[in-house]
Design a binder for these strands. Sequence first.
RNA 1: GGGCGAGUGGCGGAAUGGCAGACGCGCACGGUUCAGGUCCGUGUGUCCGUAAGGACGUGGGGGUUCAAGUCCCCCCUCGCCCACCA
Length: 830
Amino acid sequence: MSEIAGPPDAPRYDWRAIQQRWLPVWEKLDPFRAGGFGEGKPKKYILDMFPYPSGDLHIGHAEAFAIGDVIARYWVLNGYDVLHPIGWDAFGLPAENAAIKRDEHPADYTYANIETQAESFKRYAISFDWSRRLNTCDPSYYHWTQWLFLRLYERGLAYRKASPVNWCPNDQTVLANEQVVGGKCERCGAEITKRNLTQWFFKITDYADRLLADMAQLEGSWPERVLLMQRNWIGRSTGAEVEFVIEGRPEPVTVFTTRPDTLYGATFFVVAADSALADELCAPEQRAEFDAYVQQVRRMSEIERQSTDREKTGVFLGRHAINPVNDERIGVWAADYVLADYGTGAIMAVPAHDQRDLDFALKFGLPVRVVVDTGAQDPAVTGVATAHDGVLVNSDAYDGRRADETIADITADLAARGRGRAAVNYRLRDWLLSRQRFWGAPIPIVHCERCGEVAVPDDQLPVTLPDLRGGDLAPRGVSPLASATTWVRVTCPTCGGPASRDTDTMDTFVDSSWYFLRFCSPAYTEGPFDPATVREWMPVDQYVGGVEHAILHLLYSRFFTKVLHDMGLVDFNEPFTAQLNQGQVINRGKAMSKSLGNGVDLGMELDAHGVDAVRLTVLFAGPPEDDVDWADVSLTGAGKFLARVWRVCDDVGVGEPASRGAGDLAVRRGVAHLIDQVSGLVRSYRFNVAIARLMELTSLLRKAIDSGPGAGDPAVRAGAEALTVLLSVFVPYTAEDCWALLGHDVEGGDLVARSTWPAAEPELLIEETVTCVVQVAGKVRARLEVPPGIDEDTLRERALADEAVRRSLGGREVRMVIVRPPRLVNVVPL
RNA sequence: GGGCGAGUGGCGGAAUGGCAGACGCGCACGGUUCAGGUCCGUGUGUCCGUAAGGACGUGGGGGUUCAAGUCCCCCCUCGCCCACCA
């Protein structure tokens, strides 16, 4: 006890010195090479979503990569051959915008940031295999992005079509549906408008069913909400396609409906105002009104268009359709509440049973006919459409039947008459992948006057970017590549005649849809990846990243994987076996942002508190999925704990290697229990609780040293060794230094990072006695120390004999006794 | 408007239906120290009580159960996702 304060020159925990000491040693020993540490080990592929190189790492990276690092290090210590790679998602708009501003090449900005981030990752002690770095903007990478594009093109999965697309007037580019958030550009926040342009698409809709069905194998290992978001995004609905004859048009027009049972209630017909069909169907006398309406719709931004409480607008087209079930003539209207790119762009309107149709009918004085009697009041009067189950009325032969039970029969009747069929529709649209931007992979297609679209032959890949910089890249409505005239002009690979390159580049989500495969063999030159290494490592065992990619990136990667599967290039059909979404790091309840001025600088935190304190803080703050509020955490608290651990190891110091089965029994038992718990907690990613247990282990050892068997006890040494290894997954610097304090030759290669995860001695996990709680009427009134194997009758007797229990019963008769040996007895009085 | 999830001390958070609040932060007190910090120790849900002890307690209300933070129903609040998808 007298040594607690220690002499004034006692060694102190100095994280700065520790970081300086071990970082170079790790760099030299390069301890995380996948495949580099013995043959025949089982394999694990742990992948963090790769970063975008804008500036240095921020505090969000600190949390995400700390989580991935714990998992990777855990498997290394458990004898696995672990692939834990790092690369950069290096194409994209910010680099291009920076290049315009600074009058330089986007590559300058990009590669400088990549180096900065790489250095930060090293300082942050992430256990990457540094030999596998890749950047999606390297020609050696986008060579194969282009190659994959061509394979999709060959299979008819990449195609060009004119369509109304999302246009960002600020970035002067088109965007995928997925990049439009609330009617605004996901990147710059500008309001999106629609433009009719010829664009490249991937036919992801061909895979809608499989993308949906294969989620069954992800159940339980992907976050439920991510699966749900994907399901909703794919948006499968079942119903029927119904053909409506339009007077004066030879071909009927097909509509999709989920409610064929309400066909008798269709009182008008609506086509999307901005569709070619509307233009075609418009009668001459309505032309002027229609054109004015379309103009008005086109001018509207997505924001206005999507506002929910907007009044319905539309225009009568002067034509009529024939309802196939009752040959009724119904008016054909154009309206913007019908979407051109969902279903067939045309609907049958059943105002009595669809709120949108009812709003429209009431606005334009169109008839409302109830065909499902739900007992509710007339929708035409209440203004509330009834869509619930009920009995059909006004429906000829179907009258009196429950509506939902007639769906199949009505569909079958239509099919028998060649007027319809059962059908499935998806909310999912094809993936618009072309961008009118410079800093991306050029689309490897040549446009020839004679031959049309011609794929660039494989042996001419990669199609590298021309050397444009600064002002060359300023947005002007067409791709900057178009201004590189000598680059654009080529000879046609097929006929040798004059041709021009496609000047669009690919969405950066194309780059990131296959990078996890490239990591298996990043230097491979015969294809995008070496199939043999992919067989070894893929699929990814644990993917870690932000929930902001729950739809886009994950859906696209799943799609690419399925296409590659169909091409016979991979033998699995889901790329990520398990997925973990870390929470955000926020400050004072809000996401960090420049405008709020609540940003926290990671570099400054690392300088002030050290790498380990930051890592420990983000991991201890709560469950990995939860947000961490920087205002609620204590970096000094983390630092104090690390110093405490370090002093324990310093006190134990160098000594004989701990031998199993020696030393103080109580310490051995306590250590064994905590090893056992921490192992389970780390495996189930409950890092905050695991760290809490390690704090208990540290206190246990502190007490053992100060007032127990002392620092020299073999059980205390074994405990300190175990503590160090367990902690090393969370705080690698401190653990490495503790390992050295305990006498390991770290410089000589005996790294804690490559030691062995401790095992709890099973015999020590069996308790001598356990505490049994005795309740009277559900309230705890006594505790008994009992043998763990105590039988029910003995336990009941002992409980009923207990003085406190009898006092609490106060002479009342016992109605029943619930006995759950060895932990609980509940005595229930009358 | 639809869907999903969450509400536990002053705070972050623990708790296979079986001792609510582990662990930490903060705070208070004591020791160490010239002092501050560090470090060591003790205490810390609320209320009543000097104490022993007792009562209450996981957003609100009901239910199932010997036993509910945990399961079921209703309500309130907050968060996230989608949003005219026929």
